[in-house]
Amino acid sequence: MLTISEVSKSYGKKRVLDDISIELENGLYGLLAPNGAGKTTLLKLIVTLLSPDRGEILWNGAPVQKLGASYREIIGYLPQQFGYYKYNTPVQYLDYLAALKGLPREGLKEKIFSVLDTVGLSDVAQVKMRKFSGGMIQRVGIAQALMGDSRLLILDEPTAGLDPKERARFRNLIAEMSKNRIVILSTHIVSDVESVSGRVLMLKDRKLVRNQSASALCSELEGKVFEIRVKTDDQAAALKKEHFILSERNEAGSMILRYYSEQPAGLEGERLCPPNLEDLFLVMYR
């Protein structure tokens, strides 16, 4: 179990995280917040790349600062900017990273091909990575995070650069992985979290403001999300003035506005909609 207890972190005078406390058990956690809200800082604290100014992070009750290498051994980490040696093949690179992770040589080749197969790169296993697309590099990053006995998988913006098919494959993969480990997935792409996360962690104003399932979070907006079809720009402008617009789209010559309102606006054609996580994200970070 990973426990984050009263953790605060500042860069100079700027406080980035303030009094974050949370307990994580095996399962999938989506860390959701806009860019610059402190997601990466929180992940770096968990991975021990940074140390907290206050509070502590515990792994099974022991402070991770004191566990050192034995803690890092159980981490699989995909940083936001995944670095690689472009003149290496995925096999060569994973083989090298396995040595840095201290994995035994015995059965390593099979393990490497197995993770490459998992991320769909087995057919380019011996191709130099300089020829790879951004999505393929990201998959190499995911493969290295999966290597070894990673009981704590930390993925910072893992779906960046992946096409829809790769994203779907990745979502299935981490859903599977989270059965027997802690997986923390940080992203600002709401749909990624909505489709895979067991629990959603939301950061706002340096604090952890939500730690709930996606459905529980959506229920907060129950009865407050509406849609209406408007025909003229004036109508749309008037509505935008009065209410918080969540989305707008054109359909058959008219505009459909989705908006948030504490009470029904009482407009003709107004329709109550089931809220989704993106609505909550927009309302919370407006």
């Binding site: 021990t48 890092r72 980490y77 900017q81 670095g83 690689y84 040696y85 840095l100």
Partner: peptide
Amino acid sequence: ENGVIELKQSFKYAFHYL
């Protein structure tokens, strides 16, 4: 230039030690 320092720092044999 290869952007691997952060990744390596998270491993058992951390970058600074290596």
